[in-house]
Amino acid sequence: MEKFEKVSGIAAPMPLVNIDTDMIIPKQYLKTIKRSGLGVHAFAEMRYDDQGNEIPDFVLNKPAYRESQIIVAGDNFGCGSSREHAPWALADFGIKVVISTSFADIFFNNCFKNGMLPIVMPQDVVDVLMEDAEKGANARMEVDLEAQTVTTSDGEVFPFEVDAFRKHCLLEGLDDIGLTLAKAPAIDSFESQMEQARPWV
């Protein structure tokens, strides 16, 4: 996995609450056996009309936001299905950070597995960041994972919380599976205890 460093980029405002994973990547694009190439389908039903033409009003179609690396979103972003195609699509589009007051649990977990950082902020901070994002292409927001801060285009700095282990994995670009396989002896010993305690499993 690529290391997550600082992100300095354009933030797209998506104030709608409950943006679900069906919106982020509609089901017809789940029929892939690859992880890559989904960016063009991100938000497909909001982004394109029935003929496949771009809907100009949709934020990521606007000239100012086509290169967005950050999304500032309404409450409960990523609710619904467990499909990792959602973060795959966002990452493939170029999104590295999503900021909201809350995220659905599975989506939140999935982001970290793909080098993306979901940031939970209180409502008043999200309001400020949303306003900053509304400014468009000339306003670059900065996210510093090491320092755990988001800085607006006006230089206002907001700290954020992140799980220490997940931060470490993102900063170092670590592969979870490799880390866990190194603990194989502990898993072996758990399994032999389990054979005694719960032999029916």
Binding site: S81, S82, I106, N109, N110, K113, N114, D176, I177
Partner: peptide, 9 residues
């Protein structure tokens, strides 16, 4: 539920 990376894990 889990994502595909976790399925692999």
């Amino acid at each position: 539920g889990i994502g595909t990376s976790e399925v692999e894990h």
